[in-house]
């Protein structure tokens, strides 16, 4: 299943690659090696019936992926917004929504604090949690205002911004999705010792 997520594996317009399985032996760009995006691409390849160990991963900043994909330096790019909108504007095709392949409604980012800080400033942490929960719920309910707010601290051109697929802003971590990600990370040998979710999650 591809499309309608804020991140995707994309291939250049007219590329012979039609599915994640065909990425075997191909050069795929991720923003950081061994991070959530590489893990997600591996899962997409696996789900499509391919062997992820045969994919050649290269590290490239998101904003440089459109040019690299366009000039043929890479065969596919795991790209997120707003570079995804640029890539699509060049006629590129999404072949997999990798973050969705990991888990439905995957939690991709969270705020963390140290145990020490939390013990010293329980009030601040509690208020921060409440405030972010409120703002996330508001953002989820008002996508148009989000697009407006984005213009105040980025320089995304209006034409690109209109095409950007916004993410979801859940106020609570989706534990099942993080467990799925953890399992994949373990499988790919990313951890020396498997993280203890009970300690990490609220």
């Amino acid at each position: 299943m591809a499309g309608k997520d804020f991140g995707a594996i994309t291939v250049k317009k007219g590329s012979p690659i039609k599915s994640a399985k065909e990425l075997e032996g191909k050069k795929v760009a991720v923003n950081t090696l061994k991070n959530i995006n590489e893990t997600a691409v591996r899962e997409s390849v696996r789900k499509a019936g391919g062997d992820p160990s045969k994919v050649k991963f290269v590290e490239l900043a998101f904003d440089q992926m459109p040019a690299a994909l366009d000039s043929g330096q890479i065969d596919a790019a795991m790209v997120v917004e707003p570079a995804l909108a640029t890539v699509k504007g060049q006629g590129a095709t999404e072949i997999a929504s990798s973050l969705v392949d990991v888990a439905k409604d995957l939690t991709v980012a969270m705020y963390f604090t140290s145990t020490q800080y939390e013990q010293k400033n329980p009030d601040v942490v509690k208020k921060f949690q409440e405030a972010t929960a409120e703002s996330l719920a508001y953002a989820d309910a008002h996508p148009d205002e989000v697009r407006q707010a984005v213009t105040t601290y980025t320089k995304i051109p209006a034409a690109t911004l209109a095409q950007v697929t916004l993410p979801k802003w859940p106020a609570k971590a989706n534990r099942a999705s993080i467990e799925a990600l953890e399992k994949l990370g373990e499988q790919d040998g990313l951890f020396k010792s498997t993280p203890d979710l009970d300690k990490l999650l609220p």
């Binding site: 900043a61 998101f62 904003d63 459109p66 707003p82 570079a83 909108a85 640029t86 601290y153 980025t154 320089k155 995304i156 051109p157 690109t160």
Partner: peptide
């Protein structure tokens, strides 16, 4: 850097 990550090439 913000212009770069924002895909605002002329800026």
């Amino acid at each position: 850097a913000v212009a770069e990550t924002s895909q605002a090439v002329p800026d």
